[in-house]
Every structure is written in C-alpha cells, then in structure tokens.
Design a protein around this nucleic acid. Structure first.
Length: 469
RNA sequence: GGUGGGUUGGCGGAGAGGUUACGCACCGGAUUGCAAAUCCGUGAAGACCGGUUCGAUUCCGGUACCCACCUCCA
C-alpha cells in the first residue's frame, strides 16, 4: 500500500499518515461562511482537500473515507444582510430572510465548486442544524471548569488549558502583550473567547441555559466534527489564516470537552492566495470571485490546474499568464486523450508525487512525462487523480457542431488551394485559423485540428464567411 | 512587537547533501511550398553574508525583502 506523508502543522513535521481506522478514514475541512459568493482564495483549500480525498479514495477505497465540510450559517454578516433586506421593505421574518440568504449562497457555492470539479463532501452540515449539540458542549465545558458564564456570554477559560497556543506557536502572555483591541471587562483573561453570546430581539437567537443567544464562531466545528466524525479523527484542514484563532480554539474546546481523545491527528493548512504578486483585497481592486473568473470564460478546469500547479504550503500567485499557460496545456492534453479509454490505474509516478505531501506540482510534471511518451491512457487515468481531464469538465475544450463544420470546410478549402498552388489563399486561411484560436497540424495522414487558448468562435465564423467555405 | 510561510534559470515551479526536475519562452537541427504542430538537441538557477562538510541551491546561524495571522472579524 502506498504510504502517504503529510506535513502536520501541529507537529511542524512531515509525517507518515496512519489512519485511526483504515476502514473509515475521516477528514474535516472548515467550509465557507455563507454570506456571499466564494472568492478565489476560498477555492484553494477545497481543491487541496479534493485531491487529498481522491488520493485516499484510491488507496483506502471510496467507501472507507468520510469527508465533512461545514457551512457556517450563523454570522453577523448574514444577519446584517437579512436586516438590510428587511429595511429595504421585505415582509419576511428575519429568520426567513436569513434562510433565504444562506440557501442562495449555498447554491452558488455548490455551483462554483462543482465547476472546479470538486467532489461534494459526504456531509455538509450547517451550523444552525447543530445548535443543540453546541449548547450541550458549552454546558459540558462549564461543568468541567473550562468555561464560565458572564453577562449572558459563555467564555472559554484559556488559562484552564495549558496547551493553548501550541498549534500556532503562540503563548498566551505574548499575545496579550501584543494585543491591540480593548478587552471586554467581563473576561477573566484577555484571550478568553466566546462560546455563546446573547442576541438582541433583532438578531437570530436560540434559547439556552444562558438566555436567548447564538453560538460563537469556533464551537460549531467542534460540535459538528464530534457529531459526524467522532471525538478522534484523522485530518483537519483549512487555510493558514484559520490556524489562529479558529483552529486553536477548536482544539481547546474539543480537547477539554473530550479529554484523552486527541481530536484531529493531522492538521493541514494551505498558504494564502495572491493575485499578480499582491494580496487579494477589495481595496487593491484585484478581488474577484470564482464566478467572476468563470463568467470571464476561464474554464473551471483551468482554474483547478493553476491552483494545483503550486504546492499547497506555498503562497499561490494567480496570474493571467498562468491561466493562459494552463489552458494551452489542457487543450493539448484533451487532444491527446480524445477517444481514449483511461488506463486501469494511475501512473505510480503521479501517485508517488501526491503521496509525498500532496505534491501536486510534481504530479503535474509526471503528467507531462506521460504526455511526452504519448501515453494517453496513462495520462487520462493519472490526470483524474488530480481531478483533471474529467468528462464533466471537458466541455470548454471541445468545439461545438457549428464550429467543427466550419473548420472542416475551411480545411477542405485550404487543401484545394494548396493543390492549386494558390499559397496566398492557403496561408490566409492558415493565418485566419491562428487568429481564431484553431490549431492545425498537418500530418502525413492529413490535417488534424484542435482548439487552442483563446479560441474565438466569432472570428472563425467570420473567416468561414470571407473564405466562402 | 510576536508567530508562521516564502525568496530557485527569461517566466512559472518541484525534488534531492554530490548524478537531467518539469512546463512555457529562447536558440540550433530534422520536417514543411513558407509556416504551424511534432521530433531531436544546446544553453540557462537557487536573495545576501557566514558556518558545518571532501562537497550545499539542499543542513545550521544571521541579514534583507515579500506575504499572512495576532481576542467576540469571518
């Protein structure tokens, strides 16, 4: 069996992966807060985990892997949007407006991640479905002396958990020394964080032993992972920005509520996304969503390829040049595997690269090797381990019937012109193909064609008109 | 200020203490009516300063720059 090695950010080392139960490998990925469209950075952990799950499925069998990714649907931005809609004249209740907003956002999220070829997790719990479990966990933490109630809040007592800060390499005292924000007076320690907070009448709330309120952000993941994966599971992941405070707080909650269980064995964190060498931010004007890219004609498969061409633990820079490069490679590969059945198993070189801490860039290099050998079957089977060259994502690289007919007609016209030694016309058609993004290869068996990066159906149609083909 | 990540050839981007990464681009050759594609081939690197070593881009220390995170923001 292939040995997977993963960099565990908890131990800061690359470790051999040994599942707790090989018959049920369990992973949890922190999912989106569903208040708006997913931006490009949100896609990175999803794709990293997608490749990881595909690899685990390959090694342990798809029925022996359980993948959970949550939706955070309790959040002040969601509340603000619901309040905005009601202020704008909606007659629906606040709760109904929140449902409306989160439902549509989840729909968008699914559509966008589907377009990237990301498999749906086995479970996609919503925080609002686990309020009872969160309340129970909070009560338990109070009973165990790890949390306390103050002014309608329930707060986690970080001083009760000596390990606090270990994941992110911070000490409570250092963090307090560097604190920049005023501390709520009812906290015992400035680093104590909220497990439950009171809701005013114009905010969603649930009845609890501490009055009507809503959960703090972190407790949902502790409650939902325990409910769906148990109190000890294999892999927990997310963006490196979540390492502190979110994951630190999850560990504190879960380890104190379930002492001795261990919580997640391995923590995986992906580095952040940049755009053209700069941080992606609304103020820099380089902020965009996955949907923005898709609408601009960048294929989901191209986005996936670019994402996977940088190792997950390095900062990833999104550039137009990379997208163009990826598109050219994928079009060539699609041409190479057209009509070919995948090999029965992926190439060992690709599996080996992925097993080595998800070295997707190395795996892509191995795919290039298969392509260079002309091993279409091997390329196809191996690329699919990375979620590439999947039939459901291939539509963008294919010409439709009208374009095919135009291209065939133009090729025939060009052949005729060449036979007549009318090279001016032959070259005009050739140049027109190039300008329209159609790649023609003249082989001994006759011309072959494929679409290249920047295929433009309108220019092709124009060419067909002017050449009378 | 604290914590973590990064810095590799023209560009992107991996692995490995000593042997070709890989892709794109470039250059030479084959091929072509000329091209394209394809095939063959040549170049080209590891921020800076020290240390360890027979030997470091790879390990260790320091410096510089870039990025992220640093309490009810998700």
């Amino acid at each position: 069996m292939v040995q997977i090695r993963l960099t565990n950010t908890r131990t800061k080392r690359k470790e051999a992966f040994a599942p707790i139960d090989p018959d049920n490998v369990r992973l949890y990925l922190c999912g989106p807060t569903v208040y708006d469209r997913a931006h490009l950075g949100n896609a990175r952990p999803v794709l990293v985990f997608d490749v990881l799950v595909r690899l685990l499925n390959h090694i342990y069998g798809g029925d022996h892997v359980t993948y959970v990714r949550n939706f955070t649907d309790v959040d002040d931005k969601i509340n603000a949007e619901a309040q905005r809609r009601r202020a704008a004249g909606s007659t629906l209740s606040l709760e109904a407006l929140i449902d409306e907003r989160t439902a549509e956002t989840i729909g968008w999220y699914h559509a966008d991640m589907d377009a990237l070829g990301a498999m749906r997790p086995d479970h996609e719990p919503r925080a609002t479905q686990y309020i009872d479990q969160m309340i129970a966990m909070n009560a338990d933490l109070i009973a165990r002396g790890h949390a306390y109630e103050a002014e309608g809040h329930v707060l986690f007592d970080v001083r009760s958990f000596p390990e606090y800060g270990k994941l992110s390499g911070r000490s409570v005292d250092d963090m307090i020394a560097g604190a920049r924000v005023e501390v709520a007076p009812f906290k015992r320690d400035p680093m104590d964080f909220v497990l439950w907070k009171p809701s005013s009448d114009d905010l969603p709330g649930w009845d609890s032993p501490w009055g009507r309120g809503r959960p703090g952000w972190h407790i949902e993941c502790s409650a939902m992972s325990a409910a769906l994966l148990g109190t000890h599971f294999d892999i927990h992941g997310g963006g490196i920005d979540l390492q502190f405070p979110h994951h630190e707080n999850e560990i504190a909650q879960s380890c104190c509520a379930h002492p001795g269980e261990g919580f997640a064995n391995i923590w995986l964190h992906n580095e952040m996304l940049q755009v053209e060498g700069r941080k992606m931010s609304k103020s820099l004007g380089n902020f965009f969503t996955v949907r923005d890219l898709l609408d601009r004609g960048v294929a989901g498969e191209v986005i996936r390829f670019v994402m996977l061409s940088t190792h997950y633990r390095k900062p990833m820079d999104w550039t137009e040049a990379k997208a163009a490069d990826a598109e050219a490679v994928l079009r060539r590969w699609h041409g190479l595997v057209a009509g070919i059945e995948p090999a029965t198993s992926p190439a060992p070189s690709v599996i080996a690269a992925l097993a080595d801490d998800l070295n997707t860039a190395g795996a892509i290099a191995a795919l290039h090797g298969l392509a260079a050998k002309g091993d279409g079957a091997g390329l196809l089977a191996s690329a699919r381990m990375l979620g590439l060259l999947l039939p459901e994502l291939a539509g963008w690289a294919m010409a439709d019937g009208a374009a095919s007919a135009q291209i065939e007609a133009l090729l025939a016209a060009r052949l005729e012109a060449r036979k007549a030694r009318d090279f001016a016309r032959a070259d005009a058609i050739r140049d027109g193909f190039a300008a329209a993004g159609v790649e023609v290869k003249d082989t001994p068996a006759g011309p072959e064609w494929s679409l290249s990066a920047g295929f433009d159906p309108e220019r092709l149609a124009e060419l067909a008109r002017t050449q009378g083909a």
